[in-house]
């Protein structure tokens, strides 16, 4: 990962684009927050909170299919772009973060 770099627009560089395979998610620790960063098979980037609202499972260690991130613990699913609950047992959404790529840098806007 690159060194933290806060831009005027509130975006922080969190990863290199080449660090993540399409169709997967991974855990990113940034500015004291734990995020689940994902790249869909269709080439779109997204980031949500890393902690499942159901039972604390680690979303960034789960599976990404289409736009849904599946918690590896009990199978709750969240939308990678909105944080909305797609499947129980979670009932509360997670925060979603605007994510952009500039060159090789994946940047996330932490203020929600």
């Amino acid at each position: 990962m690159t060194a933290l770099e806060q831009t005027a627009s509130g975006f922080v560089t969190v990863a290199r684009a080449a660090d993540i395979e399409p169709g997967t998610v991974r855990v990113i620790e940034v500015e004291g927050r734990s995020l689940c960063l994902g790249l869909t098979e269709d080439g779109e980037w997204g980031a949500i909170d890393n902690v499942c609202t159901h039972d604390g499972g680690t979303l960034g260690e789960g599976e990404l299919d289409d736009t849904g991130v599946e918690c590896p613990r009990h199978g709750a699913r969240f939308d990678l772009f909105t944080g909305r609950v797609l499947a129980l047992p979670a009932v509360r959404p997670v925060n979603a973060y605007q994510t952009v790529v500039e060159g090789d840098e994946v940047m996330v806007r932490l203020g929600t």
Partner: peptide
């Protein structure tokens, strides 16, 4: 998924799509 049937679905009125194994 059947696990929510005896838990979340008993306590609240929730949409069927929320229990689908795949969308």
């Amino acid at each position: 998924n059947r696990p929510p049937l005896s838990k979340e679905l008993l306590r609240d009125d929730l949409a069927d799509e929320l229990v689908l194994a795949e969308p």
